[in-house]
Design a protein around this nucleic acid. Structure first.
Lengths: 191, 191
DNA sequence: CAAGTTTTTGACTGATCCATCAATAATGGA
DNA sequence: TCCATTATTGATGGATCAGTCAAAAACTTG
């Protein structure tokens, strides 16, 4: 039928996601994307149309991988431990690589100029919120988590604290300080 | 002695701060700064040296104004009310203008590429944290705020929740949802 | 008024930006 | 084998980027 692609489109989107995550949307040049994906200029544009289009694919991928990651949180450990682990792992990763959360980065960078991309990033929040609501309801059923507030409200409290902690981690706060705050947030969920 | 400046340097830095706050550092062009300040290209470079230099001044100004704003929080109302008001006003402003906090935006955009600017933004956090510690200690002295945790830890909890809420606000979460979360965070401070 | 100093002015630079394009190559089906 | 279709390749494009410069202007001091 036609000449087959030499590259793996999935791998290219993944590589682009990493590049955007590291440098941010505006600061990522098409050259950066070429280096990151290993593709040539023309191929990249033939396949993805534009820098914006590729970013959109990368952000969708981040969202979908996040869903997978949040499923892993549905392990068999106690719900409070799962919530604690989610925050600790995110914080520790950010201390290590200084990249934070791609969705948070996208909202803070682009909410003003690119409402559609911001809305896509928001879907990541909605997804995380849903996973947290589920964990809170589990913990409540097990008598581990307080029942005096809607689960969704507790989930939003956790999510806002988490995202704020990622910013602190990116800003260079010490792991010790961050871990203490995580534990305090978790403690406030207890019955 | 010499030809006097036609522009007000303070006002120019202020205008640049607004522009950077609205568009972000990378996405702000020198033309944007020229339009924002009303200065001509050469004058702007003669006065401030570079885009980066002007951003640094703008960020310092943001920090120093924040200090002033946080003093206003030291009003005569009850400490819990002051903390609540701080969060509500920040959240409402962000719902209205979609700009969030310049320090948070700077950290998420530039922590990887510009550690010095990120460190400057972190000073804004340190300052806010100090104001919160003071409010928490006040509230504790008045028997309003729990005493089972270090004031600094409670302050960091509030700050992380606050910054996370600013991200949610920028992402388009409803004022109602945001206000509920603010109230829950405040409630968790009570004895 | 003249000398000395700094600012203003806007044209100019080279680099980099995102994107396009024509030519070539590689495949499957007729 | 030849055609239709799609991908690769890398040169090229105009726009915009941050930053510079020389000339003219506006002030103070002597």
């Amino acid at each position: 039928m036609a000449r087959p692609r030499k590259f793996d489109a999935d791998a290219a989107v993944e590589a682009a996601m990493e590049t955007f995550w590291t440098k941010g949307y505006t600061a990522t040049s098409t050259d950066d994307l070429i280096n990151g994906t290993g593709m040539l200029r023309g191929s990249l544009y033939n396949a993805f149309g534009s820098k914006r289009g590729l970013f959109e694919l990368a952000l969708r991928r981040y969202r979908d991988k996040g869903a997978a990651g949040q499923n892993a949180i549905q392990a068999d450990r106690p719900p409070l431990e799962r919530i604690r682990w989610l925050m600790l792992s995110g914080v520790d990763r950010t201390v290590a690589d200084r990249r934070g959360c791609l969705a948070v980065n996208t909202v803070t960078e682009l909410a003003g100029a690119e409402p559609e991309l911001s809305a896509l990033a928001r879907q990541c929040f909605t997804q995380l919120e849903a996973a947290l609501v589920e964990a809170v309801e589990d913990g409540r059923a097990q008598g581990e988590i307080r029942a005096d507030r809607p689960a969704r409200l507790l989930a939003r409290q956790v999510m806002s604290a988490f995202h704020g902690l990622l910013v602190q981690a990116k800003a260079g706060y010490s792991p010790q300080s961050l871990h203490e705050t995580v534990d305090a947030v978790v403690a406030d969920l207890r019955v």
